[in-house]
Amino acid sequence: MNFIQCFEYRGDLLIYSLSYAAQPVIYLLVWLAVSASSQSLPMTAQEFAQYYIWLLIVQLWVSAWSSPFIAGDIRHGKLSPYLLKPFAYINFHISENLGEKGLKTLLTVPLVVVLILILKPSWPDLSVFGWVIFFWTWGLAGAIYFLIDMCVGCLAFWFDDISAIDDLYNVLHIIFSGILIPMILMPDFVRNLATFMPFRYSLSFPMEILLGKLSLSEQSLGLFLQIIFVVLIYFIYHKLWVIGVKRYSAFGN
């Protein structure tokens, strides 16, 4: 149903897909310019191309955008119909999220193909086990991103306007998720901080595995922390939802 609904807004969907792709593509171009001007970068131009082209797809499948809609539902009293339905509110957002991602992927793939043809990046050098770990961490990254987004949305039970909180979250995500700058290029203090924050595990971690930049022990620790973050953030979301729904009241029909 969400897939069909997205087709109704084809122009919008194309623009949204372009806006998702814009940041990685622009920063790919910026880093290519930097690598053309510097010999001492820890990443080569080929690695930058590989990183950002994969980031286009990985980022697309981990991203979530439900929080403003949840806040809107809460603020305008539109949550009530969902509370009467025989399925959880979160399931509606999961299906909407996956449906839209499917379509966005169709729109992003041509851009990825063009970039591959122009920049000719090498294929990631991963074993079968490495690929299994990558896909597993990719899925968990999506879960972390989605659950944080749900938590931010639920804050609308307490605040009239959550857009500032959403923006604050975006700033932290940009610094610690590797979306603009690969973690390997970050100063040590940022990398150390990122190790214990969920943002790294919502995007950068699977990307680091893909580039083969992590040892087996670092991968194991990261995987362990990802699972911990999923459980912890789900617990926070559940608490916010249960307490929030209790204090929720709506007017009219």
Binding site: E8, Y9, G11, D12, I15, Y16, L18, S19, A22, Q23, I26, V30
Partner: peptide, 20 residues
């Protein structure tokens, strides 16, 4: 295009490009 809601996204794309 009667169903065009993504003006803000275009604004974001242009903003990202023009910082460099």
């Amino acid at each position: 295009l009667t169903k065009l809601r993504a003006i803000s996204s275009i604004h974001d794309i242009v903003n990202t490009i023009l910082r460099y």
